[in-house]
Design a protein around this nucleic acid. Structure first.
Lengths: 124, 124
DNA sequence: ATAATAATTGAATATCTGTTCAGATAATCA
DNA sequence: TGATTATCTGAACAGATATTCAATTATTAT
């Protein structure tokens, strides 16, 4: 019976053909908190830009200042600074001031692990 | 000496102040292939949208057809179909036809692992 | 102080992205 | 066959995004 069709009214009042109502309701129950999901999406999104990804990949090995990263990416320091702020807002990197320079590093081990799992998938 | 400043000509001809040339060169050597990096960035990017993320989270538990997912997300089937194509292009989901319906599921275990590691980071 | 270096910030713009809409395929059934 | 259901596709538009540019803050050196 689970594959039989059911035409019914959804709780938002729209008449729709729902094939597996059980699965839909189950999925709704299992969904994580909207706040967590939003933050998780932002985390992936921030890694989804080639230049930001290059930054975190480089920081896997050693901390670097903005100037280093700009030279590495062949990008303006302003552009790098903008990207670093996004990475920092999501707790992917942390900064440490030393005189005039500010050194960036990965914030915790989860970040490196996230990169490794992603690489495994890409190289499968 | 590694913290001394070095003003020099980069190989692209731009005069820039590079603080830790060793680190920059090391980072350039360690960089993964541009093709892999591009693909890795696309993988994260595709997970970086709340609706697409909801889709893969739901598919962690059970396969679902487009109609189910549209009901679950309260989104048009067209919109869901567009998103599913992006997920499929990056091998995050696979499809299986059964009559008129097409069922989607996660493509491999890496995907679920990627979600789990991401969740750990968000909830830390 | 003044100058120089490192990094940040906000505004502007060109580009990219997600959804909608209308129409096209594909499979099933009367 | 024609009708219905499920899914896909391409164009278009509104909203988001990355970089550049100019100006600003913070630190160090003279």
């Amino acid at each position: 019976m689970s594959s039989s069709r059911a035409s019914l009214f959804e709780d938002d009042g729209c008449r729709v053909g729902v094939v597996h109502m059980r699965r839909v309701e189950e999925a709704r129950r299992e969904t994580i908190a909207e706040r967590d999901l939003e933050r998780l999406a932002l985390t992936y999104k921030v890694l989804g830009d080639p230049n930001r990804l290059k930054i975190v990949m480089a920081l896997k090995n050693v901390e670097m200042c903005v100037c280093d990263l700009a030279a590495f990416l062949r990008l303006s320091e302003s552009a790098v600074s903008h990207q670093l702020r996004r990475l920092k807002d999501l707790a992917l990197v942390r900064k440490r001031r030393e005189g005039q320079r500010i050194y960036y590093a990965l914030d915790d081990d989860h970040v490196a692990e996230l990169l490794n799992v992603g690489l495994e998938h890409v190289r499968e």
